[in-house]
């Protein structure tokens, strides 16, 4: 393509034991783009997403063949420090999962475990900055030290985004981040994605095709573990090249 690339996946085959979940997937993800991954349940899009920061390592018997490169560096090489990789490639999960601690401690968690700063003032700054970036500051600034569990679902998810931003990642992986939220909270998350795009490379898995069309620059359509089509979002939704893509986005199956 000639344009800069943040993540390159080439010829990725993914297995859960003897069960193959991804078949020869290749994709180039551009920096400061929002890349959406769509497809029916079980098509491998979440597996693909989780292989980018090696979260799949946690599943016994899972393995990847092929190559995943972050800035040209092989993510699956022995010399790759997984801890460091996960700091660079943050993740937002489908179900918001703040730790049962205060909002402040949630956001500060990554900073603390990575030993980024010990000074209270600096920590305060990071917390405020990231909460502002996640558009949550005004809502929680008066109750930073109260349990994050008392926040609403949408606030919790934005807190999780703030928590991920606090370790200054380069890439954000979002696994259906709004699927459990009401339309207003969803809209807020989408606005946030739009803002964050300026700084981060974002890859978002979504079941919601309108959402993919609204927030993303490029979209990949997965089916049965294969990347069927990958194109600019506008083109993919208005003029799909592939018959299966067309059937899916027009709601004829899935």
């Amino acid at each position: 393509m000639g344009s800069p690339v943040k993540i390159t996946v080439s010829g990725a085959n993914f297995f859960y034991g003897s069960n193959q979940a991804l078949h020869d997937v290749s994709m180039e993800i551009r920096p400061q783009f929002v890349t959406a991954l769509i497809g029916p349940s079980g098509c491998g899009k979440s597996t693909f997403l989780r292989s980018l920061n090696r979260m799949n390592d946690l599943i016994p018997g899972a393995r990847l063949e092929g190559k995943v490169e972050l800035d040209g560096e092989n993510v699956y090489s022995d010399s790759m420090d997984v801890i460091h990789l996960r700091r660079r490639v943050g993740m937002i999960f489908q179900k918001s999962n703040p730790f049962p601690m205060s909002s402040y401690d949630n956001v500060a968690y990554g900073v603390r475990v990575n030993g980024l700063t010990k000074k209270r003032i600096e920590l305060d700054e990071v917390v405020e900055k990231t909460l502002r970036a996640a558009a949550l500051w005004d809502e929680v600034k008066d109750r930073l030290h109260r349990s994050a569990m008392s926040l609403s679902g949408g606030q919790q998810q934005r807190l999780c985004i703030a928590r991920a931003l606090a370790v200054e990642p380069e890439v954000l992986l979002m696994d259906e981040p709004a699927s459990a939220l009401d339309p207003i909270s969803t809209a807020k998350i989408e606005e946030l994605i739009y803002d964050l795009k300026r700084t981060y490379t974002i890859i978002i898995v979504t079941h919601n095709m309108q959402q993919a069309a609204r927030v993303s620059d490029e979209t990949g359509f997965f089916l049965s573990g294969r990347l069927v089509e990958f194109n600019e979002t506008k083109k993919l939704f208005t003029a799909p090249r592939n018959r299966e893509t067309e059937d899916y986005i027009t709601g004829r199956f899935g």
Binding site: N53, M55, L58, I83, H84, R86, R87, G90, M91, F93, K95, N97, P98, F99, Y109, G110, V113, N114, C160, R163, A164, V167
Partner: peptide, 17 residues
């Protein structure tokens, strides 16, 4: 819940942490 472990690991925490 597994969610908490994943969230922590995804933030670059070690298993011990």
């Amino acid at each position: 819940p597994r969610d908490y472990r994943e969230a922590s690991l995804a933030l670059g925490a070690t298993k011990l942490q």
